[in-house]
Every structure is written in structure tokens, then in C-alpha cells.
């Protein structure tokens, strides 16, 4: 049997060792690629803000519901650091997202029940400084008002 020169890499006498080497190299490449992909996945999960957005949207929606249940006027500083997250107060829902997610659709929202006898603040609270912004709620006869506040 006559082999062309190019194929001799697989069928020459020393081909067995070469093939072993190539396959070992190929295996290492695949394991390396799988390892990198898994590392990337774990890293993305650890740096992700999905849980933060879930937590903050729900917690603040329940806080608004609680404010409505108070019989009198109330002022409340939300104690959690909200980091770089943006809070969008819309009709019947609070939407939480990071700046770049407006287009990417990564916003997470949670509904709250409005009491229409009090006007509700609709607007966006943007972070003043990372890890230094907190939300300030107040409810009186003029309605429910939310402001961003700088923690000194």
C-alpha cells in the first residue's frame, strides 16, 4: 500500500506514538476548555446580581405595602446598601436593574398594592455612589414619597 506524503503522519512506523501524543493533546485541550467554561459559569454566578434584584424588588414592594398599612404618617430609611442598582417605581410595581440592563432585559420587578387615596411616587432612583446609596421612604397625607439618600 502506497501512502501519500501528507498521510504518513498517521501511517508511518513511528505513527503510533505520534497518534497517542495528538490524542493526549486533544484530550487536554477539551478538558482545559471544559474547565475554563465551568470557571466562567461559576464566576458569572458569583458576580451576578440576579439574587440582589430579586431580593430588593420584592423587599421594597413589601415595604411599600407595609407603609400603606400604617395608620399614621411614617418616615423610614431602608437600611440595606443597594449598590449600583437602579430602582424604578412604576404603577403597581418596582423594577430593579443595573444601568446596562435596560436594553438587555435583565430588570426584575415585583408588584405592590397601591392605596389610591395616597398619591404614589413614580420615578427612578439612581445610585448616588456605589455602596453608599440608600432609599428613604415617607408617607403622609400628601402620598408616598421615595428618595435616594447618600450614606455619609
Amino acid at each position: 500500500m502506497v501512502y501519500k506524503r501528507g498521510s504518513s503522519i498517521f501511517f508511518s512506523k513511528k505513527a503510533d506514538a505520534d497518534i497517542d501524543l495528538w490524542f493526549n493533546f486533544f484530550e487536554l485541550m477539551i478538558v482545559f476548555a471544559a474547565g475554563i467554561t465551568l470557571w466562567q459559569l461559576v464566576n458569572d454566578e458569583s458576580k451576578g446580581t440576579t439574587y440582589d434584584k430579586l431580593y430588593f424588588s420584592r423587599d421594597n414592594a413589601m415595604l411599600v405595602n407595609t407603609l400603606y398599612s400604617s395608620p399614621g404618617d411614617i418616615q423610614y430609611d431602608y437600611p440595606e446598601k443597594t449598590g449600583r442598582l437602579i430602582f424604578d417605581f412604576k404603577q403597581n410595581k418596582i423594577e430593579v436593574y443595573e444601568d446596562y440592563e435596560v436594553q438587555e432585559g435583565g430588570a426584575i420587578s415585583y408588584p405592590f398594592a397601591e392605596d389610591k387615596t395616597y398619591p404614589m411616587y413614580y420615578g427612578t432612583i439612581k445610585p448616588i455612589a456605589a455602596d453608599k446609596t440608600m432609599l428613604e421612604y415617607s408617607k403622609n397625607k400628601n402620598g408616598v414619597i421615595v428618595n435616594g439618600k447618600d450614606i455619609h
Binding site: 439574587y51 430579586l54 420584592r58 405595602n65 400603606y68 400604617s70 395608620p71 392605596d115
Partner: peptide, 25 residues
């Protein structure tokens, strides 16, 4: 292991009950 579900059903129920009882409206 990564938590993406939060069960706040009981808290929401208690808040609604308190709202029904304490809200002036």
C-alpha cells in the same frame, strides 16, 4: 446551590392581614 427563588408568601399574607386591620381606608 444558587438561590433564585425566594418564598415570601407568609410575609405577604401577614402584611395583607395587617393592612386590612390597621389601614384607615
Amino acid at each position: 446551590l444558587v438561590v433564585t427563588q425566594i418564598d415570601s408568601a407568609e410575609a405577604e399574607a401577614r402584611i395583607l392581614i395587617n393592612r386590612l386591620i390597621y389601614s384607615p381606608n
